[in-house]
């Protein structure tokens, strides 16, 4: 699968990592008859931006040792930060694919990519430097976030995630009057990013004046 260069300036991810993630997130949330998938929503760029955020370096996590493995109930205990997990796991997964299939993950056929992702999720693929399941769970969490978070974080391009659900984004001042009304409220979604760009009209309290839509189906 040839890689199309992105319009974004990436802060952390390198080219093989971008290619890996573009392919992986396309399998997790595919483009289909319902509309764009995670790659088209710029989820790879979202992940890149998250990795250079306070979260990406676990800036607000407790990071003192001793580092013991613990039980599943005790939660995240890896000494690796998200930045380090992505870097190590993508490299390890590509090494695995090269060994098994002679090509990197992003050059595999879709069906083979799905099998590799399932292997990471179940832990049946062992990566040398990081838990495959830990990586997969992080990747899926970030993919879902990137598809549905406000576009101000770099993903959910054109609010495709919100359109898929029928979620109108930033609230309207009209909601209070609609609370006990069963009539469907269907509006063009508005993001914080739209408002920052001056592309939405607001009422005096800063709530959005939604443009209502009629949906065919």
């Amino acid at each position: 699968m040839p890689h199309t260069p992105s319009a974004h300036a990436y802060s952390y991810l390198n080219l093989p990592e971008i290619a890996f993630l573009d392919a992986a997130v396309s399998r997790l949330i595919p483009q289909d008859e319902l509309g764009p998938g995670a790659k088209e929503a710029d989820v790879t760029y979202y992940i890149d931006q998250q990795l250079v955020s306070v979260w990406g370096t676990h800036g607000r996590n407790y990071r003192q040792g001793p580092w013991l493995e613990g039980t599943p109930q005790q939660g995240f205990q890896s000494r690796l930060t998200p930045q380090e997990i992505y870097r190590a796991a993508i490299r390890d997964t590509n090494e695995y694919c090269l060994k098994q299939f002679n090509v990197r993950f992003d050059f595999l056929k879709e069906e083979a990519q799905l099998e590799v992702l399932k292997g990471l999720e179940s832990g049946s693929i062992l990566l040398p430097h990081v838990s495959a399941k830990l990586f997969f769970d992080l990747l899926w969490k970030n993919t879902e976030e990137g598809f549905f978070a406000d576009p101000l974080y770099g993903g959910n391009r054109d609010k495709v995630g919100w359109r898929l659900l029928g979620f109108p984004g930033v609230a309207s001042g009209a909601y209070a009057a609609h609370i006990d009304n069963p009539t469907l409220y269907q509006a063009e979604p508005v993001s914080i990013l739209d408002i920052k760009k001056g592309q939405a009209s607001l009422d005096a309290q800063g709530y959005v004046k939604h443009v209502m839509i009629r949906k065919g189906t």
């Binding site: 549905f148 978070a149 406000d150 914080i192 309290q205 800063g206």
Partner: peptide, 8 residues
């Protein structure tokens, strides 16, 4: 507003 309407 609108910054508090930020789920992430």
């Amino acid at each position: 507003m609108p910054y508090v309407h930020d789920e992430l």
